[in-house]
């Protein structure tokens, strides 16, 4: 099992697409968390981009005390989509290249191979989360130093909780990508379906339910994106007005946590069950 895990990590480490996705997530976080707000801050209140928000508020949003908001605020939607793509390319690639048959004719069983892939993906997602956090922290330190802002950090436990919550959100979307890849034995279709779901359908469904069918709100409250947004909202403690797209208090933090864990378990079990039972052709 350890050998299989090392092999999976080697594959991820050497695959440029994995780092391109990480880079995209990092750049998006920095652009939306720091670059655009800083441009708004630097150009003053008169700029319509700031929408009348006081400059001091904009600056506060970029200081170390809000580093968690900027690190994981984009996870439910944008970084989540990237994590889904990661899961789909890693598992779907085994089908399109035919490498699944090569690794399944080595010593480990199918369950062990899939478990190693999940563990390696979990490791890579942790690297993503820590990497984005480090970059956001550096930006916030730089801005605080440049603008004489306060250097107050969230409590270590809050940081840990926030990063763990962010990791769970990305892991859930990543596992969704893997189960779609196993189902379709492909890369392109799972990415297409998954990304359309995250970026469009869930938001649309939630909107329709809220405005037209409020009695069906319980249904939208079990959707993965809703719970991802709720968990991020809960662990960051951000104000509703500051929340980025997809982050809202639809359900409580505890319920969101359990729902996301359940999704992770369902996706992993479905992928394992299908992989173990199906012929590899």
């Amino acid at each position: 099992m350890l050998g299989s895990y090392r092999a999976e990590v080697l594959k991820l480490r050497k695959r440029s697409a994995v780092w391109v996705l990480f880079g995209a997530g990092l750049v998006l976080s920095l652009i939306f968390g720091y670059l655009l707000p800083y441009l708004g801050y630097a150009t003053g209140d008169e700029n319509p981009q700031t929408d009348g928000i006081p400059r001091s508020e904009i600056l506060r949003g970029m200081l170390p005390e809000r580093v968690l908001d900027n690190t994981i605020g984009g996870y439910p939607i944008f970084a989540g989509a990237l994590a889904l793509v990661l899961g789909a390319i890693v598992v779907g690639g085994e089908y399109t290249w035919g490498t699944l048959k090569t690794i399944l004719t080595q010593r480990p069983g199918r369950g062990a191979v899939l478990a190693s892939q999940f563990l390696a993906l979990a490791t890579m997602i942790a690297v993503w989360v820590l990497g984005i956090f480090a970059a956001c922290a550096l930006c916030s330190i730089g801005i605080a130093a440049a603008e004489n802002g306060a250097m107050n950090w969230p409590a270590p436990l809050d940081i840990l909780q926030g990063l763990a919550g962010g990791w769970l959100v990305l892991m859930m979307w990543c596992l969704a990508g893997t189960v779609l890849a196993v189902a379709f034995r492909n890369v392109a279709l799972p990415i297409g379906l998954g990304v359309v779901w995250i970026l469009g359908i869930e938001t649309l469904l939630a909107g329709v339910v809220n405005s037209l069918l409020p009695d069906l709100e319980f249904l939208s409250d079990v959707l993965p994106g809703t719970n991802a947004g709720s968990l991020v909202f809960s662990v960051t403690g951000m104000a509703t007005a500051d929340a980025p797209p997809g982050v809202r208090d639809a359900v409580g933090g505890g319920r969101a946590l359990l729902t996301l864990l359940a999704y992770c378990a369902i996706f992993a079990v479905l992928a394992a069950w299908t992989t173990r039972r199906r012929d590899v052709t």
Binding site: L10, K11, P108, V113
Partner: peptide, 10 residues
Amino acid sequence: DNLRLLAEYA
């Protein structure tokens, strides 16, 4: 690297 990772699996 291909052989390395297969050696890890096996």
